[in-house]
Amino acid sequence: MAEISVENFTWEVMIHLNLPGSPFTEQSDYAVVLPMVRTAVAVIESWCGPIAEMSEPAPEPILHAIRMYVGHLYENREATSLGSVNEMPLGFFDLIGPYRKWAFG
């Protein structure tokens, strides 16, 4: 079964977003990014089922979808914006689509 450590994966997401900081400094966006990673995991699991039930290790498309979703949340922290409206990043649903759990009833 695939397991991801949300706390450790948050550092990988921060590197992906090119954010400063490390586990050894107080000056980082870790406290901001960690809840976003948890939210991204919850959203993806609502579409695809628990990541823990996927193949080992967690599929890279799922991990990249988490990175993309967090990037979207990080750049669009407010419900409204001045100027442009931003959609989910292109490719997000293409990444999670093959892992989607379908239910009818």
Rank of each mutant, 00 (worst) to 15 (best):
S28K: 08
E26V: 11
T80V: 09
A31H: 12
E45H: 05
M68K: 15
E60S: 15
D29F: 02
M68T: 13
Y30I: 07
E87Q: 04
A31V: 10
E53A: 14
V41S: 03
Y69P: 07
E78R: 04
T80F: 10
A79D: 11
V41K: 13
P57L: 12
G71F: 05
L34T: 04
E56P: 07
G83Y: 03
L90C: 00
E87Y: 01
Y74A: 06
S84W: 04
A65W: 13
S55G: 12
V70D: 11
S28E: 11
L34D: 06
V32I: 08
I44A: 00
C48K: 01
E56G: 07
G83T: 05
H72A: 03
E56C: 08
V70M: 11
H72G: 01
H72M: 03
N86Q: 02
M54D: 09
I44Y: 01
V43R: 10
Q27R: 15
Y69E: 15
P57D: 13
R77Y: 00
A79K: 10
E26P: 01
I51G: 02
A40D: 11
W47T: 02
P50V: 04
D29V: 05
V85C: 02
R38S: 10
A65Y: 11
N86D: 00
G83M: 02
N86M: 02
G91P: 02
G71C: 07
G91F: 06
R77I: 00
Y69T: 09
Y74T: 05
P89M: 01
E26N: 13
R38T: 06
L73E: 12
N76P: 05
D29H: 01
P50S: 15
T25E: 14
M88Y: 06
L82K: 00
I62K: 05
E75N: 14
M54P: 01
E78K: 13
S81K: 14
R38Q: 13
R38N: 08
L73H: 08
L63D: 06
P50W: 02
H64W: 14
V41L: 02
M68C: 13
P50I: 05
E53R: 15
